[in-house]
Design a protein around this nucleic acid. Structure first.
Lengths: 209, 209
DNA sequence: TGAAAAATACCTAAAAACCAGTAGAAAAAA
DNA sequence: TTTTTTCTACTGGTTTTTAGGTATTTTTCA
């Protein structure tokens, strides 16, 4: 089997050197080039065959995200592995959407790197362990999550969103206005907001209205 | 060019089969999955790249509307086409507002479907013929419409939604609290609501926040 | 340039919301 | 059945909003 023709794209020379060293002894892989920006890579690709690209997402000229997309359009048979420090879920998901076959953090072990490369070449998408964690843990928006509301509180919230005053609500629910007031205060505490206006906005964001 | 990776989400197996059959012979599109509820779709999306989602709005678990929004937040590059039987204007408009790239009725022709898919992928929003008719005749709701707000009013509205008091806002905008008060009152009048809480809810409905 | 719209600011007073507690009864969960 | 949560209601006090106005200065645009 031919060796995998591999290039590295990263604007940190140190990272390039590190990867080169790490992969020097891999016998099914040969590093044929390394570039510090997108233009260099594209120029090289148009002249030479490449099987695998190890790509950083932060580059001086084009965002790695777009670059990934461009490369995949022109050279769909080339496998792209993202090697990055970004731990934001959205960025990771986006790169995959743009055609990358995997995502590794720069502190990944050689073992993980090797595993991801072989996986990616076979066509599967491959993440390093930490990345899997990031993907599987819901976003902080979901993490903080909508507060747990009681039945009564939901009722009161909904009536507040209709512009009703405590008195109105009390009449409607056959309660003392003071009780409604308590519910209102508990709601504001649960939502961790300053007043009803902000609470309505928050409730809307959390799809509670 | 790669084939468009397409998934179908509908709780009617018959619709799924129908769409599959219709699209089987499209050579620039490949159906890689079909799901009967939102949870299945989300789980698949987190693991696999998808270019196009054909989505029904009525699903057993989450409303297609919310689902649409969620998907677009997490995977903004995925194109969503709504395929539905709902002919209510508000629903159609809402899906578009939530990030869908088009809306078709289930009785649309293959020709229309094809046209909408190519259009949507290119970034334009695409409706089938009947849907265009529905949209073009405005409803009484649309007649009342969202109020016309001035620049300052929008600012104040936004800050109110953040739970700020008139004093806070005044400081932030270098105004007299009394001025902010005036803006607030004008806003409440324009929205024809009773207080700020209801206004925030209304503003959210009209997609002004 | 002149009219209309928007932004600014003020007054008064009542109504409502917000804050910080407490506490008994009812319902749900352990 | 005991414990916990939820629902109920209260005291007392402060801050903010709301409702009725009026009025000057900027901006905008026709």
């Amino acid at each position: 089997m031919n060796k995998l023709l591999t290039v590295i794209v990263d604007d940190h020379p140190i990272v390039i050197e590190g990867l080169k060293t790490l992969l020097k002894n891999e016998d099914n892989l040969e590093i044929v080039g390394s570039f510090s920006n997108a233009a260099q890579l594209l120029s090289y690709l148009s002249r030479n065959p490449v099987n695998l690209i190890l790509l950083d997402v932060t580059l001086p000229d084009i965002g790695g995200m777009e670059l990934c997309k461009m490369v995949k359009e022109k050279f769909p048979d080339t496998t792209i592995l993202i090697i990055s420090n970004h731990t934001e879920r959205s960025i990771i998901m986006q790169t995959i959407q743009n055609g990358a076959s995997g995502y590794l953090l720069k502190n990944s072990s050689l073992e993980e790197l090797r595993q991801c490369i072989t996986g990616a070449i076979k066509g599967t998408i491959c993440y390093s362990k930490e990345v899997v964690e990031i993907i599987s843990r819901p976003t902080k928006n979901q993490l903080r999550g909508a507060p747990q509301l009681t039945r009564r509180e939901k009722q009161v919230l909904s009536l507040l969103a209709q512009g009703k005053t405590s008195q109105n609500i009390a009449q409607e629910l056959f309660l003392s206005p003071l009780t409604v007031d308590t519910h209102r205060r508990n709601l504001i505490q649960k939502f961790e907001v300053k007043n009803v206006a902000e609470m309505i906005a928050a409730a809307h964001r959390e799809q509670l209205l």
